[in-house]
Amino acid sequence: MLAIIVSNKVIVVTGAGGGIGSNLVHNLLSKGARVAAVDIDEEALEKLNNKAGEKNEYLSTHRVNLTNREEVEALPEQVIAHHGTVDGVINNAGIIQPFINISELDIEKIQLVMDINFYGTLYMTKVFLPYLLKRPTAHITNLSSMGGFVPVPGQSIYGASKAAVKLLTEGLYSELKGTNVNVTIVFPGAVATDIIKNSGAEGDAYDSIKKANSNKKVKPFTPKEAADIIIEGMERNKYRVLAGRDSKLLDVFNRLNPKFAAGLIAKNMNFK
């Protein structure tokens, strides 16, 4: 299958209001793409539009709650009404859970994490796929996480949601072989975004973990670095993208010795 070159293509990006998402939008615009930016935060979308400057004529913003299937189902026609077509989707939106054990985590919070991370990705994939299949070449890029293949204590539900995205995307790749729609799965490592704050995951447990790791030489990727890697992976039609030094290293450890990888994460998290 031909790889998608984003210039002159219409790409939908979820979680576009900040972090990796806003950097994905600016990267795509800089490469000559038209972008439909999707987020639940209307103020963030307005800031994104303002920051686009002269490129904002190639940008549309859409306030959508990804947990609401009806809102997601209405999105393709909105995008097509503005841009004329759609060539790709990057499912970037996601939240984490509070840094606590499953036994202490509210069912409502568990449901929200699964609804946004897994079902939001699934809804977007389902509703856009019929349109993508009509294009000469198209692409779906889904963001899982390093936590989708190695367990992170205090983030077990988040990890489960991202593991579900991993297998969903890998299954989708196999199902779409021989069609015009390419599929990429992305595993970001630590990226310096506001996901903790935006997810409402701040608290004593997180503060303790942050303090314990403050002296360790761990340099998270910037959102721009992560976004650049993701777009490159999409344009090169990669099956799998490991965005981050930690993600690459733990991927190797997990393949060689999953138990060792799990223990290493637990030790470095200093989670109790």
Rank of each mutant, 00 (worst) to 15 (best):
I4M: 14
I5C: 03
N8D: 14
N8Q: 12
K9P: 09
V13F: 03
A16I: 06
G18D: 12
N23I: 00
H26M: 13
L29R: 01
G32D: 04
G32N: 06
V38F: 05
D41I: 01
E42P: 03
L45M: 09
L45I: 11
N49L: 05
E54T: 14
K55A: 15
E57A: 08
Y58D: 14
H62A: 10
V64Q: 02
R69A: 10
E71I: 10
V72H: 13
Q78D: 05
A93P: 10
I95H: 04
I96A: 03
I96Y: 00
P98A: 08
F99I: 06
E104Q: 12
D106H: 10
I107W: 12
K109Q: 14
V113G: 01
V113I: 14
N117Q: 07
M124I: 04
K126F: 01
L133S: 07
P136I: 05
T137H: 10
H139V: 07
L143Y: 01
S145L: 07
M146D: 06
F149Y: 15
V150A: 07
V152A: 13
V152S: 12
Y158K: 01
S161V: 06
A164L: 02
A164W: 03
K166T: 15
L167C: 01
L168H: 11
L172M: 13
S174G: 06
S174I: 06
S174V: 07
L176N: 08
I185R: 00
V186F: 04
G189Q: 09
A192D: 15
A192C: 00
I195K: 13
I196R: 08
K197F: 01
D204A: 14
N213C: 08
S214E: 14
N215I: 03
N215A: 12
K217D: 13
V218G: 00
F221M: 15
I230V: 12
G233I: 11
K238P: 06
R240M: 15
R240T: 14
R245F: 10
P258Q: 12
K259P: 02
F260T: 03
A262R: 05
L264N: 02
N268T: 10
N270D: 10
K272R: 07
K272L: 00
